[in-house]
Structures are given as structure tokens and as C-alpha cells.
Write a protein that binds this DNA or RNA. Structure first.
Length: 276
DNA sequence: GACGCTGTTCTATT
DNA sequence: GAATAGAACAGCGT
């Protein structure tokens, strides 16, 4: 489901909803959702804690608590949050419920069950997995450093951009949009990307993901922010899930292929295949 | 009904 | 190590 713009949207909405609320209890309905510790220990560690702030690092949601703990949450494909003023019944796919002292609740739901919550120590959560190896978001990434990483690999540029240790925040939608905009074929080997192209990938990635964030992200099939609020950026997508339709630039028919197992949308005219 | 797809990332295997 | 295939899972479209 969500990429950087969508996770930013969710984390901002969460911050609005639960900042300064005090957790009184946590109910875990699906143990596998809690990673790295037992539900019992999680409840012990966050009970009575106040949520100081909710933010995000790439696609990870970060809850900063007023004790020595941090809660990390990843939505993966279909994780969703719901905030309720009153107690609500969990549904079939409600995996975790936070009770707050004021009687309100935060529900975490995920019908596919890939989404996670994990507890970390505030003192070193940036230096241990899963956040430790992440790269910078494109607006903060040095393009020479980025280009250096690309040079070291013959893997497809699309695969490299999706690697969160190379650049942070791109997912399948925004990588296809960015490569189409820059007329780069997704299978171009990393070591054939020029410095200028590397710079442009970061520049356009920053631009499109900031723009999308300002519209609440892209609701393509199931994504929505908390309480089912949809994003409206999908109307501006040029190529993602447009296979069979004309390219907005040259009117050639957009094709869909697979690159390293990921569905990939390409204009066969605009995005010229690299010379072998 | 079966099969192949889905906005992600981690693990195992080569 | 680097690169790939498969796995985690439920639902939807063909």
C-alpha cells in the first residue's frame, strides 16, 4: 500500500489524533503483528506512557513515547489505522487496539497481515535494525553519494531505487512515475546511469512525492489514511496502472512488464532501452 | 474454482 | 558479498 507520501500523510494524521494521549492498555489480537517482543512485554513497556509525537522515517511510522521507548510501525501493503473517540468493537482484521486514558482508542487493522509494530529503546533505535541501514529521503540525499551507489551495481535502476538502503521512500508507484518522467528505461543497469540522471531522479522524486503528500497521497486501490480518508493524487499519475492506455507524452501504448518480480509500467517509445 | 495479480520487506539460496 | 526467488497473507479480477 503506502509509499513515502502516504506514510507521511498517515503519520501526520496520527500525530493529530493521538499526540499527548496516555496509553492505558494494549490489546493484541494477532501475535505475529508484534515483532521482536511478546505482546505481554509490549503492554508492560507502553502502558501508562504518553505519546509525545508521531512522525515517520521513510515508510516507517515512529511513535515517540515519554518514557525510554519508541514504537515503530510499518503498514507494508494494507495496514491501516482508525482512531475512535469511543470504544469500538474490533473487526475480523483488527490486530492491535490501544486504549487511551480518556476513553478513546486507536485500532491497527491489516487484512493481509504483513503490517507490524515493534518496540525499541529510544537511546539507540536509529542504530539498530530495522532503521539502521536506511538511506536518506531524496530531498536530503547527496546525489554524488547516490550515484556512487548506483555505479556499484548492474542491477536494474528500478530495483535499485526501490532498495531503501540506497534511497529512502520510493515504492512501486513513484518509481514508475519518476522513470517515465525522466525517460529512463526501468531495466537500465545502475552503472549506466549518469550523474545528471542520478541528480534528476532525486530532484523529481522529491518533487512528485512532496506534491502527492500535499494531496494526501495516491489512493489507487485500497490505500487510505486513518479513518478511511482517501488521497487524491492518483488523478495525476501518468503511467502507473495505465497499461493499454496512450502515453500522455507520445501516445504510444503503455506496456506492463515485470522487473525483478514487480509490475512495471513503461512507455516503449519514451523510455528507450539502454544500449547493451 | 483456479490462477495470477496486488502500493513491502525479510530470509534463504545460489 | 551480490543478486534472485520465495515467503509472509487475504482478497479481487479474469
Amino acid at each position: 500500500m503506502p509509499e513515502l507520501p502516504e506514510v507521511r500523510t498517515v503519520s501526520r494524521a496520527l500525530n493529530e489524533a493521538v499526540k499527548d494521549r496516555v496509553i492505558s492498555n494494549v490489546k493484541v489480537f494477532r501475535e505475529k503483528t508484534i515483532v521482536g517482543t511478546s505482546p505481554k512485554k509490549l503492554i508492560l513497556a507502553v502502558g501508562d506512557a504518553k505519546i509525545e509525537r508521531v512522525t515517520n522515517i521513510g515508510k516507517w511510522i515512529v511513535y515517540l513515547l515519554d518514557n525510554d521507548k519508541v514504537l515503530l510501525s510499518h503498514l507494508r501493503m494494507t495496514g491501516k489505522y482508525y482512531y475512535y473517540k469511543d470504544k469500538q468493537k474490533p473487526t475480523k482484521h483488527t490486530h492491535v487496539v490501544f486504549d487511551f486514558k480518556d476513553g478513546s482508542q486507536l485500532h491497527f487493522e491489516d487484512y493481509r497481515g504483513f503490517g507490524t509494530l515493534e518496540l525499541k529503546d529510544k537511546k539507540d533505535y536509529l542504530d539498530v535494525k530495522p532503521l539502521s541501514k536506511l538511506a536518506e529521503e531524496p530531498q536530503n540525499m547527496n546525489y554524488i553519494h547516490f550515484w556512487d551507489k548506483l555505479q556499484k551495481s548492474r542491477r536494474a535502476i528500478k530495483t535499485l531505487i526501490l532498495d531503501q538502503t540506497i534511497v529512502l521512500g520510493f515504492g512501486n508507484i513513484y518509481v514508475d512515475e519518476t522513470l517515465w518522467e525522466l525517460r529512463i528505461h526501468p531495466e537500465t543497469p545502475g552503472n549506466q546511469i549518469s550523474q545528471k540522471q542520478a541528480k534528476d531522479i532525486l530532484k523529481f522524486g522529491t518533487y512528485i512525492m512532496d506534491w502527492s503528500t500535499s494531496l494526501g497521497g495516491s489512493t489507487v486501490s485500497t490505500y487510505s489514511s486513518i479513518n478511511n480518508i482517501e488521497g487524491s493524487f492518483s488523478q495525476y499519475l501518468k503511467i502507473f496502472r495505465k497499461d493499454g492506455k496512450p502515453c500522455p507524452r507520445c501516445k504510444s501504448t503503455i506496456v506492463k512488464t515485470k522487473v525483478n518480480g514487480r509490475g512495471t509500467h513503461t512507455c516503449p517509445e519514451c523510455q528507450v532501452k539502454f544500449p547493451i
